[in-house]
Design a protein around this nucleic acid. Structure first.
Lengths: 341, 341
DNA sequence: TTGAAAGCGCTAACAC
DNA sequence: GTGTTAGCGCTTTCAA
């Protein structure tokens, strides 16, 4: 292990000067500086981050806590955060919580011991409480908002995205539009639900509670919820479905297949969040796309700005994009009307 | 920041005793131990890992370096490694290299500063050289083998998996079986290529170099390679394709679509590595499935055993599973023969 | 502009 | 079984 002492010796200066030459070059005479840097290079010196962090009472480390790294949306967030952090010489400590409060607590505890400078978290309902473990730490909430007063958040405009999707379905003539919605203690799910509600209202359609089914964000939940909705009596069964996240959308498509329903002929479908799956499945899915990479990158940039003492907006919303593909079509009755006009 | 000193004071012992009571309880009298643990609990004490690691010259940290975290196969490996490491109280520092040597070097350099106890890496051709940065560090190579003598590897039986797939296609009567293969400086690609070769031989089919196209593991490469293969003159164009990894398989399916070829009627396809995409696309893809989670978990368990000084096998191969779904069918001529028999 | 010295929080020797 | 002491590798006073 080559240490600062070795570099100092080779460059014939004290350890203190060697340290300065490498970390704060402006404090050192040019010739000395070059001698030290040269020595460091030839020895292949790498600072011991542990010692440095211990001394400085804080490491150049950021925490990242996501709820499901196997979800491509989250994987993309993680990659973006890593890319930005790395460019600024920060190391990211990443943890996965599977939406479990206990795992999140553990992640926070471990993180604490590493003296991170900041944290980016996709919050769960338990996050508010668990953050007690990291008092005073700058935190950015990503994708969802926990509701903590004053929290910094980087989100997507869920309400508008959902509104756009449901308005589109209504415009296609659908009068029974179902929604598969996430847990109502998670902000994204609430907001998408709101958008759904408002779109129905603006389209002059009644809100029918029996057409709204909750699910726990996973594929299986989406499948079960879709089955429940499609089991309704003819006349009141939805002819179109708006699904609140990417995983549940997969489930909804599979449910349609289970029942032999063809998209978009027998059922129109619009999902929230784009993915390669949505792009390549047949028919290609009409979706509300989220700028996942940009979202993660922005969260990280915001955190780094915050750490630099710059003023940053407390809350940022990125726009979603509505992408019209082939999984939604005019309702049967609508097509008839238009055809006979 | 509550430190060990605070705990010691509250428990009325020295810092050393407090340290022992928490880290090596068997060295401390029971009553003292309880007093200290109680004090730690009430103060919410968490050890400063930095100080501990500095003192012990090594942190309870593992490095994990993968080449593409957005690839679900790699995401699964990563989750498995994390799960196992966490259960043993290790923290994982994860890096993504995008198959770029420069990024890998950087990852190794940063890692070095954190004094990890071991490293799990999905190697690239550059890894062999780059590992000079981490002399003496226990390393497990995951999924691929770099060829370093004596290296510990946890792999899948690529040759056998590929052999099985190609034999299956040959058994279906295909005589022109193309392969889209990965970079030949990566072990998995070489081995899968070998399996392809041997299967052809055992089926009495000639190896035709023009039916083998290399690709750089990405979707776009697979698509381009498939286009090239399918552009061959009738008579010598492949009627079946074996694709060497999951991303390129997506590309091959899209190429078939571009050309209006139907699977499996106009073209039979077998991919390497299963995925939700392969399961839910229509027709569902016949694939050689890899135990991704188990692979990652085993790599981590092996590393931890190694660190505990236990004897571990230098190389482990996990079996692949051939999953017959709907993307491969008897060749036209074969069907004819069988039909007329 | 540089060096000497102290100390970050913890654990391992060594004494008792 | 417990306390005292020293030191991990670095940065940062403070003094020169």
């Amino acid at each position: 292990m080559v240490g600062l002492e070795d570099v100092a010796k080779l460059a014939q200066v004290s350890a203190a000067t060697a340290s300065r030459a490498l970390s704060r070059p402006e404090l050192v005479a040019e010739t000395t500086r070059e001698r030290v840097q040269e020595a460091a290079r030839t020895l292949g010196y790498r600072p011991n981050v542990l010692a440095r962090s211990l001394r400085q009472r804080g490491s150049r480390t950021l925490g990242l806590v996501v709820t499901d790294i196997l979800n491509p949306f989250h994987a993309t967030l993680a990659k973006a955060v890593q890319d930005v952090a790395e460019a600024q010489d920060y190391t990211v400590l990443m943890f996965n919580t599977d939406e479990e409060s206990a795992k999140e607590r553990r992640a926070f505890e471990i993180l604490r011991g590493h003296l991170p400078r900041g944290l980016i978290v996709v919050p769960t309902p338990a996050t508010h409480t668990n953050l007690d473990l990291l008092p005073g730490l700058p935190v950015i909430e990503l994708d969802r908002a926990s509701g903590r007063p004053g929290a910094h958040t980087v989100l997507v405009d869920n309400e508008v995205g959902a509104y756009r999707a449901v308005s589109y379905l209504a415009g296609l003539g659908h009068r029974y539009i179902g929604m598969i919605v996430g847990r109502q203690d998670i902000s994204t799910a609430v907001e998408r639900h709101e958008g759904y509600r408002r779109a129905l209202q603006d389209a002059g359609l009644p809100y029918r509670p029996e057409l709204v089914r909750p699910g726990n964000h996973r594929e299986g939940d989406g499948r079960a919820a879709a089955h429940a909705l499609l089991a309704l009596a003819p006349g009141e069964r939805p002819t179109a479905l708006f699904v609140g996240n990417n995983e549940m959308t997969v489930g909804a498509v599979l449910a349609a297949r289970d029942l032999g329903l063809r998209l978009p002929g027998d059922l129109s479908l619009v999902g929230f969040d784009d993915s390669r799956w949505a792009q390549t499945i047949l028919p290609a899915l009409t979706v509300v796309a989220q700028p996942a990479y940009e979202l993660g990158a922005l969260a990280c940039r915001t955190l780094l700005s915050l750490l630099d003492g710059r003023v940053v907006p407390t809350s940022t919303r990125l726009n979603t994009t509505f992408i019209e593909r082939d999984s939604a079509a005019p309702s049967a009755s609508h097509a008839q009307k238009v055809g006979s006009a």
